[in-house]
Design a protein around this nucleic acid. Structure first.
Length: 630
RNA sequence: GCCCCAGUGGCUUAGAGGCUAUAGCGGCUGACUUGUAAUCAGCAGGUCGCGCGUUCAAUUCGCGCCUGGGGCUCCA
């Protein structure tokens, strides 16, 4: 919608002849007033077609605001298509104008709507004060994207944004024996990291001057980097990083298969107009990417929820299949505010392993939460990061399920933070979070487990119960490991913290891109290295060969800079003896061992991880340099 | 989104209202064939983030934009 507003002393028009076949019927062809009025020339555009009522309401808002500013009660609504290069269909324009007129009348303005579809003569006399001439532009599809959905007033619930403002909550610490203490009374002496985490959540103590250390590390290790050619918060993954990313994705997927999940893939973009999605968007304060397809607007998914819910709503589900688990590695998009973005901690494009577990009722939900805690803990431990656990619970749920909460605290095995909120501001009544505290004492949430009490019904997901009747289930939303990018953030921040304590920083062996680097002493040994490489490959171990014409010292340095855990310098001695001389990063030692021993040592430490190949050429001389130093 | 800070070859960086804009790493060429964190020499590589303005003159000053970081807000 485009609009030109003129505050005028008097206004008149005369309809001459029809410009459109289906032009409005006229009661009178001439109109004239001497009173002052606010004349609004309005052109409806194609973008208004996605939501005419919304566009009309916003337009009426704009006019009313402008009228109040110039203290005007007389309004003229004048159809004027020539303001736009992308006019809507005439029917849309007519509907928009009629709705705007009615809306303004309801608000108590004197409104004259100039007939639609006629060639007209008109006379206007602009008052000439600073606010007398103004123009307005509205793209209603973008307004929708802001989730400030104008249809909300007609609907039943508030946006989550508004609801969150009202929500009040209280923070406690629950110990493993079930003792609950208010956060301010708890003795944190033995729980330094928990204190840092709680501070971050409650006191909002967030003072950092430096960039988070993981940002520099991720570039130096050539794992992931900014892409200036994309939107902010969208990153590119060179092969080393992609190897690590895929290793994590495969690890989580295999754990989910073990857990009994149905692994699937659903679309990236969804229709704004789909009825279930429309009301779900009101519940989700995150901003969306808008994708245009012809005249239609879609939004990029911000989690796997939609795809899986729509799929589940059409599936035939029996109570015998419950709990039913749907899992997906879901590339997701959230158009976070610029200032909220920070390296791998907060992105606009990220990869979220997302499982939805459909359960019959609260009892089954609680059992499933206990089950899920098992794999969440396992995966978190494999990341080799320290973490703090918190639960956010609706008071009503908490009071009804105190023993359940105590059971969780016992299972977690260390004090946990509990936030009890009075009013439900989102779809969940219960939410567990596994958080890392980074080198700047900021917290980042990785895994999360939530009990959703409203989307079963919203998406018309039903299961057939024993009695043959359709019933709405509860749904657990869970990210078993947290977003892959955020995992990398946690792992790198942990490495940096270790470094500060004087330890050698490292990546977990199972996810590190290159597990073994072979450094031949001279060119003649490269062939022998290739043979060793073949054996490593068969064993599922990722390796590369530094065949560049450089000194051994420099080859070792290069490998150390990339945090490669096993470096084997290979020369004539090794070729003759058949033994390897291995420099082990974590143990800071240098040992002789056979190839078989090396393979066994790595395999023993990585038994749980699926095999992931290195996604770049084995010969370092053939590898492009993307962002590593040497 | 708002407020603050920054942006110099691929990377790290020196510099100053003016004359041919530093240096190291990396790259290329040559020599060396190397034993556990940097071998030597030479060469190439820059519209000093983009646009507009101020000025005789702008990479340097001002404004706007883009990108990154920090704060607010918010989240996997």
């Amino acid at each position: 919608m485009r609009m030109l507003q003129i505050h005028s002393d008097g206004f008149s028009f005369e309809a001459k002849r029809k410009a459109l076949k289906n032009a409005e019927d006229l009661t009178e062809k001439v109109y004239k007033t001497e009173d002052s009025c606010l004349v609004n020339f309005i052109a409806a555009e194609t973008s208004d077609e996605t939501n005419v009522t919304g566009a009309a309401k916003t337009t009426a808002d704009m006019i009313a605001t402008a009228a109040e500013e110039v203290k005007e009660t007389n309004i003229v609504v004048y159809p004027w298509v020539h303001l736009s290069e992308t006019p809507s269909k005439p029917s849309t324009a007519m509907k928009l104008l009629k709705t705007v007129t009615k809306d303004l009348e309801k608000r108590g303005f004197n409104v004259v709507q100039v007939p639609f579809g006629w060639y007209k003569a008109f006379a206007i006399h602009c008052k000439g004060h600073p606010l007398a001439e103004r123009s307005k532009v509205l793209d209603i599809s973008k307004e929708i994207a802001k989730a400030a959905d104008v249809d909300v007033t007609e609907g039943e619930d508030l946006t989550a944004l508004q609801a969150e403002e009202k929500a009040t909550s209280t923070f406690y610490i629950m110990e493993t024996n079930g003792t609950v203490t208010a956060v301010k009374d708890f003795n944190f002496a033995k729980y330094k990291e928990l204190k840092l985490y709680v501070n971050y959540e409650t006191a909002k103590d967030r003072t950092a001057q430096e960039p988070p250390p993981h940002i520099e590390l991720m570039k130096q290790l050539e794992l992931v980097d900014y892409e200036p050619g994309s939107d902010a918060g969208n990153f590119r993954w060179p092969p080393r990083g992609l190897t690590l990313k895929k290793a994590i994705e495969e690890r989580v997927t295999s754990e989910m298969v073990d857990y009994g999940a149905h692994v699937l893939q659903t679309p990236l973009i969804y229709d704004y107009q789909h009825p279930s999605l429309k009301s779900y968007l009101q519940r989700f304060p995150s901003r969306q990417y808008v994708v245009k397809s012809g005249d239609h607007d879609f939004f990029a998914r911000f989690s796997a929820c939609f795809g899986q819910f729509l799929l589940a709503s059409q599936a035939t589900i029996s109570h015998k299949q419950l709990p039913l688990k749907l899992f997906e590695i879901a590339p997701s998009y959230r158009r976070e505010q610029r200032g909220e973005l920070a390296g791998m901690r907060r992105l606009r494009a990220f990869t979220m392993p997302d499982i939805h577990e459909i359960v019959a009722d609260e009892e089954m939900a609680k059992q499933s939460v206990m089950n899920q805690i098992e794999f969440v803990e396992k995966l978190m431990n494999e990341l080799e990061v320290s973490y703090e656990v918190s639960f956010r619970v609706l008071r009503e749920f908490y009071e009804r399920n105190t023993s359940f909460m105590e059971k969780i605290a016992k299972r977690i095995g260390k004090p946990i933070m509990i936030e009890v909120f009075e009013e439900r501001y989102a779809y969940f009544v219960f939410k567990g979070e596994w958080n890392v505290v980074d080198a700047q004492n900021k917290a980042g949430c990785l895994s999360t487990v939530q009990i959703d009490v409203e989307n079963g019904e919203r998406f018309k997901i039903t299961y057939v119960d024993e009695d043959g009747k359709d019933k709405y289930p509860l749904i657990l939303h869970t990210s078993p490991s947290g977003a892959i990018e955020r995992i990398l953030y946690g792992v790198l921040e942990q490495a940096y913290k270790n470094m500060k304590k004087g330890q050698v920083p490292h990546l977990p062996l199972w996810m590190t891109p290159v597990q073994v680097r072979l450094a031949p002493v001279d060119d003649a040994i490269v062939d022998y290295c290739l043979e060793i490489g073949k054996t490593l490959d068969e064993a599922g171990i990722r390796y590369e060969i530094d065949d560049r014409s450089q000194t051994v010292g420099k080859k070792v340095r290069s490998a150390e800079k990339l945090w490669i855990p096993y470096i084997a310098v290979i020369g004539e001695i090794e070729q003759k003896s058949g033994e390897l001389s291995i420099r082990r990063r974590e143990l800071k030692d240098q040992v002789k061992m056979s190839l078989g021993d090396l393979i066994r040592e790595i395999q023993n430490k990585t038994t749980f991880a699926p095999k992931q190949r290195l996604l770049l050429p084995h010969l370092v001389s053939k590898q492009a340099i993307f962002s590593r130093e040497v």
